[in-house]
Computed example of a mutant assay.
Amino acid sequence: MIVIAVGGCASSTGNLAELEAKCVPLETSARFSCWWSSDTAPLTHCVMRDEDEPRCNLRQKAAVYFNRGAYTARVLDRPSQGNWTVLSVFEDADGRIGLKATRTSGETFLIHHSETPIDINATAPTEPKWPRWPAGIESGPPHAHQRNPD
């Protein structure tokens, strides 16, 4: 159902304490560009942009999270008919993967995560505005990455 670009990840080297120090819960993140259709439709066509620490494996964990059905609410820069959006995915201390929010107290938490119940009333996602990936994702001649050439 979801198209997601996931590549290889650097293998874990060094000791476990060093890796844990780099994988700080709710701080270490991976950024993705995804197609946002609506508040009630899952994110689709997610493409990795960058990650803080490849050894934390957020790229692969986020792929599972997106394929399960990740949602995010609309903000002012997202038109109601759908648009590309860049978002960060985090892991909490319990190993859940998701989207971070901050309470008025300053406490951070995952507002939607890999253990959130799947919404059986979800709307179908709209088709992305092709033919181009968002700026910064692709490279090469302008025609090289067209999806639906006219």
Rank of each mutant, 00 (worst) to 15 (best):
N121I: 01
E115G: 04
T116G: 01
E115I: 05
D119N: 15
H113S: 13
P141G: 01
A144L: 12
S114I: 08
R132I: 00
E127F: 09
W133P: 02
P128W: 08
H145T: 13
K129Q: 13
R132S: 11
H112F: 14
N121H: 08
S114T: 12
E138L: 04
P141V: 09
P149I: 11
K129D: 15
A144N: 00
A122R: 11
G136T: 12
P142D: 03
P131H: 02
E138G: 11
A122Y: 01
I120N: 00
A122D: 00
P134N: 00
E127W: 04
I120P: 14
H143K: 12
I118R: 08
D119Y: 03
E138M: 04
D119E: 11
W130A: 11
Q146G: 13
T126L: 05
A144D: 07
Q146R: 14
R147A: 14
E127T: 14
A135F: 10
A135S: 14
H112I: 13
S114Q: 09
H112V: 15
I137K: 02
T116F: 04
W133I: 02
H143V: 03
H143W: 11
H143F: 03
P134T: 05
G140K: 04
G140E: 03
R132E: 07
Q146K: 14
W133D: 08
R147D: 00
W130N: 10
H145Y: 02
A144S: 12
P131R: 02
H145N: 15
S114Y: 09
K129P: 03
N148H: 14
H143L: 10
E138H: 07
N148R: 12
G136Q: 07
W133T: 06
P141W: 03
W133F: 15
A124R: 11
P149C: 07
I137G: 01
P128C: 06
G140N: 04
E138S: 15
D119V: 08
K129F: 10
P125Y: 04
R147W: 12
R132W: 00
H143S: 10
P142S: 09
G136P: 05
N148E: 13
A124D: 13
Q146Y: 01
R132V: 03
T116R: 01
N148M: 07
T126P: 01
E138Y: 04
G136L: 07
I137M: 12
S139Y: 10
P141H: 09
P125K: 02
E115Y: 01
T123P: 00
W130G: 15
I118H: 08
R132Y: 07
G136A: 06
G136M: 09
K129A: 15
A144C: 05
P117E: 05
P141A: 14
Q146T: 12
N148D: 15
A144G: 01
R147M: 15
P134F: 02
R132K: 12
S114H: 02
T123N: 08
A135W: 04
Q146E: 13
N148Q: 12
I120H: 08
A124Q: 11
D119A: 11
A124W: 03
P128V: 06
P131W: 00
A135T: 10
H112C: 01
P117V: 12
N121Y: 09
S114E: 06
H143N: 10
P141T: 08
N121T: 04
T126R: 09
T126F: 06
P142I: 06
P134V: 09
E115Q: 14
E138C: 05
G140S: 04
P128I: 05
A135P: 07
P125E: 09
D119S: 13
P128S: 02
H113N: 15
G140F: 01
